[in-house]
Design a binder for these strands. Structure first.
Lengths: 228, 228
DNA sequence: ACCTGAACACCGTTCAAGT
DNA sequence: ACCTGAACACCGTTCAAGT
């Protein structure tokens, strides 16, 4: 169907080709549209041929996550720890934004791959080099959670019905039922036509929370904070 | 199969019974085991009978999330905003821990239900009553993200192979490859037999990050912080 | 009008039969 | 030894036929 399939059909299958085709398919059609059968069709191959290169679908997803994590820039050794961590996490975020399915795929993984372990190990090393105790580093990594990989769990994706008719009609009822929510939302996109959410600047919100955490980490570090 | 199915088989089907049975099934067997077909079997009913009470599986999941969110305690009006928010979020967390599938179900939702909107509206109201500007409240809610509902995206669930033989054998290689990670992990469960992760106190880590954020919010509020 | 069996268009993966 | 078609045991949901 896509010209990509044609261009690659004759090349011999390999794990790398399978993973890259899976990433491309997920980029185009979303993670829900990714099935072993559809991927094999895209590669011009019988479904069972994939199982020579990945043990099962879970391993395929692991490999796809590794491709994305591999796109994250290495740390800059010439800046202070906070700048370095901040830059690296924002690089991870850019990788995640190029592959919108990746955050959900990462969430679904149950065991970290070597590629992910190496990324986390390197990030832990950045805190240690910045003067964080082993103890504080541990809690700091937990506090970052998925933010260490460039994303956070926003509560909902598409916050509003796109039909302006329905939207205007709903506003009166919304204000009555959810006054605080509407007050906040109205302030956000007060010169846009939407009512809730679409005006939010995700990048700003991500950096707001990230910086709040990094500043908090710094304060604890300077105080010599310990959990015991 | 379960005695629950027998006990309820004769009662007429209703949306509430469908939702409660779905919650019970997910509690017992996990969210992956929840299918329309299996749920109907549990209720002693033909699969299509469910579609009288829920439009489709997405609406079933929405309803299940509503059941869980409905278990969260209302805010205590007699304490300061920080205590009130903290207590409420920890109440949400307890509800989430009673239903381990719920965080993943919430993540998968794309549009908030009225029940969830009301919860968020009420939480926004708590910040407003505590003296937060509309502007700051907005960013604060984003910074909380899924934490407002009592969970956060931990990076991985079951961090290690449970076989101590494999674990011990892997430790030497782990230390060579992921020195910082092993250093942190060794400190954590230094008197337990595990190597990575299982010694982590999830509740402590959740409160650590929550309090770091709440303290940061408080500092910004006192400073009269504004994004513009 | 209500209910429901069969059917449709999918899945991931096993396995035995073919080369 | 390698490859693969058919089959298995599932899905969510549509739809037409039954009451």
């Amino acid at each position: 169907m896509s010209h990509e399939a044609d261009a690659t059909r004759r090349a011999p299958l390999s794990r790398a080709r399978v993973l890259l085709a899976a990433v491309a398919l997920a980029d185009d059609a979303g993670i829900d549209a990714l099935s072993m059968r559809k991927l094999s069709r895209e590669l011009g191959v019988v479904p069972m041929a994939l199982y020579k290169h990945v043990a099962n679908k879970d391993e395929l997803l692991d490999g796809m996550v590794d491709v994305v994590v591999g796109e994250i820039d290495p740390p800059d050794p010439d800046v202070d720890w906070k700048t370095a961590v901040r830059q690296r996490i924002l690089s991870a975020r850019r990788a995640l934004l190029r592959h919108p399915w990746a955050s959900r795929a990462i969430e679904s993984r149950t065991t970290p791959t070597p590629v992910v372990l190496e990324y986390l190990d390197s990030m832990i090393g950045m805190f240690r080099a910045g003067g964080f105790s082993v103890d504080l580093t541990h809690h700091v990594m937990h506090a970052l959670g998925s933010r260490a990989l460039g994303f956070s769990q926003e509560l909902f994706d598409e916050p509003q019905s796109p039909d302006p008719q329905v939207r205007a009609a709903g506003l009166r009822e919304m204000s009555a039922r959810y006054p605080h929510l509407v007050e906040v939302a109205a302030r956000v996109d007060h010169d846009e036509e939407s009512v809730v959410g679409p005006g939010c600047d995700d990048q700003f919100e991500f950096e707001f929370a990230l910086d709040l955490l990094l500043d908090g980490f710094d304060r604890l570090r300077r105080r010599g904070w310990s959990s015991t």
